[in-house]
Design a protein around this nucleic acid. Structure first.
Length: 274
DNA sequence: GATGATGTTGGTAA
DNA sequence: GTTACCAACATCAT
């Protein structure tokens, strides 16, 4: 469940369900998910209490009482689940955090792309990906001045630029297509060709879309079971993503799907022109 | 059965 | 600094 709104939904679910819970022990079935030495990871977290879970971009930050932070990235398919002790595990359960209250916090990940890194709190910035992460897509951090500056300096296509986590935190493939459609900007437009009006529009659509998607508990594409029983609702509000061949809601032109920088890209060829 | 695509990121090479 | 390609994996659609 990757993009920012989905990660935020997971963060809220974790705070609701396991804030204050204490880890008794950890089982790791796929060691590559843990970036630390696995034995040290288990040992340092045993007996620790989850004080709260924060988020930066698409990264979850589990805060523990002993000055440790576990950075967790779900990548494509990572999911957390809270279950009664020794229940609910599947062949895709790769890490089990046993809690002292007779529940288990499960980490499930069909493709095993997700990663966890344990670092001293305050040193999250040393974790790959957090070192260079850009501003959060909220009004006071993603300023017009900032966007104007980075766009003006780049000839890159606008879609891969807004997907670049070091430029803006949290946008993924779905919301990149959605916000560009809302802003009537072709995904292959060079960033430095955007007008001031287009920049302002795109910025506002990014900020609004993220907030709206969080309200809808994120987008569930591969449907199935979402952690915490919070199946995302936002897939019902997508305008172009997954709508290849369907009429554009604004002009009726059929939505096209192309490849841009190796990613599937949906857009309206009538309203989003180069 | 084979092929290609999938909500991501990081490393490498040109 | 860029871009392109690949790798990490499993599942689903064609």
């Amino acid at each position: 469940m990757p993009e920012l709104p989905e990660v935020e939904t997971v963060r809220r679910g974790l705070n609701r369900l396991v804030k204050g819970a204490t880890i008794s022990s950890i089982d790791v079935y796929w060691p590559k998910i843990i970036n630390n030495d696995v034995e040290s990871f288990k040992q340092r977290l045993a007996g620790q209490t989850i004080q709260k879970v924060d988020r930066r971009g698409k990264y979850l930050l589990f805060r523990f009482g002993n000055g440790l932070t576990m950075v967790s990235h779900l990548r494509m398919e990572g999911k957390y689940n809270v279950v009664p002790q020794d229940e609910g595990r599947t062949k895709h359960t790769h890490v089990v955090f046993h809690l002292t209250d007779d529940r288990d916090l499960l980490y499930n990940d069909t493709r095993k792309f997700g990663r966890m890194t344990l670092v001293p709190t305050g040193e999250e910035v040393t974790v790959a990906g957090l070192k260079t992460i850009g501003p959060e897509p909220v009004a006071d951090q993603l300023t017009i001045a900032y966007l104007t500056d980075i766009f003006a300096k780049s000839k890159k296509m606008i879609k891969p630029l807004i997907l670049d986590q070091s430029k803006i935190a949290g946008i993924g493939n779905i919301y990149a297509d959605e916000t560009l459609w809302m802003s009537k900007i072709h995904p292959m437009r060079p960033a430095n060709s955007l007008t001031d009006d287009e920049i302002a529009t795109l910025r506002q659509n990014i900020i609004d879309e993220m907030a709206m998607a969080i309200k809808g508990h994120g987008t569930t594409v591969h449907s199935f079971s979402t952690a915490f029983g919070e199946a995302g609702q936002f897939q019902n509000q997508l305008h172009v993503y997954g709508r290849e061949g369907e009429p554009c809601e604004r002009c009726g032109t059929l939505i096209e799907k192309i490849k841009v920088a190796q990613r599937g890209t949906h857009f309206c060829p009538h309203e989003q022109q180069l």
